[in-house]
């Protein structure tokens, strides 16, 4: 059996269940699994085996995308430890953090009206990147120490940075024609 459906995403790629991972190993194991599950190899297989290989390939893809993206990986790791971040009714966050987010959003709103919008966006983007790096370090430390409450709080902040980064990119691609 190439793929065991009962395994979690980390096990699927023979990776330790932790935030820090060897991306080379993740990608190389992913490519190996993809080759082994390639439809060509199931051309002569029974319909049941073909269906199985498709499901396995889709699981492998989903697992790879989840682990490859740091925020998705962190969220998934929280989930494996029984911690959810999806509650829309949990609105309590550090006011200082929210203040900073509001300032970043104000700066983003003003960026297009500045003489050099791309430069203004660059400066916001670099602040966001440093925010993300900070979250990554904090999350890794909290997760290693088993402090899932702190890990969860960090992911919630990380989500804000991630969302803003995507908005900056969208504005950049609109301006950068």
């Amino acid at each position: 059996m190439i793929v065991d459906f009962s395994k979690n995403h980390f096990d699927l790629f023979d990776l330790a269940q932790r935030y820090e991972l060897d991306e080379t190993q993740l990608t190389s194991k992913y490519q190996t699994l993809q080759r082994e599950l390639h439809p060509d190899r199931f051309a002569a297989a029974t319909d049941a085996e073909k269906r199985w290989s498709l499901q396995a390939a889709s699981l492998v893809n989903e697992a790879y995308q989840t682990l490859k993206h740091p925020l998705n990986r962190a969220t998934y790791l929280l989930g494996l430890n029984g911690v959810s971040v999806d509650e829309e009714t949990d609105t309590q966050m550090d006011p200082m953090f929210l203040m900073q987010q509001m300032e970043l959003r104000e700066a983003l709103g003003d960026a297009e009206a500045t003489p050099d919008p791309l430069k203004a966006l660059d400066s916001i983007a670099s602040e966001l990147s440093s925010g993300v790096r900070n979250c990554q370090t904090k999350f890794a430390d909290a997760a290693e120490g088993g402090d899932w409450a702190a890990a969860r709080a960090t992911v919630r902040e990380w989500q804000f940075f991630d969302k803003l980064k995507r908005e900056v990119k969208a504005i950049e691609s609109r301006l950068d024609y």
Partner: peptide, 15 residues
């Protein structure tokens, strides 16, 4: 009195 809240899933910030 100032209240600040946020919704990480949508990235909303409210003051």
């Amino acid at each position: 009195g100032t209240g600040m809240v946020g919704a990480p899933a949508c990235g909303d910030v409210m003051r």
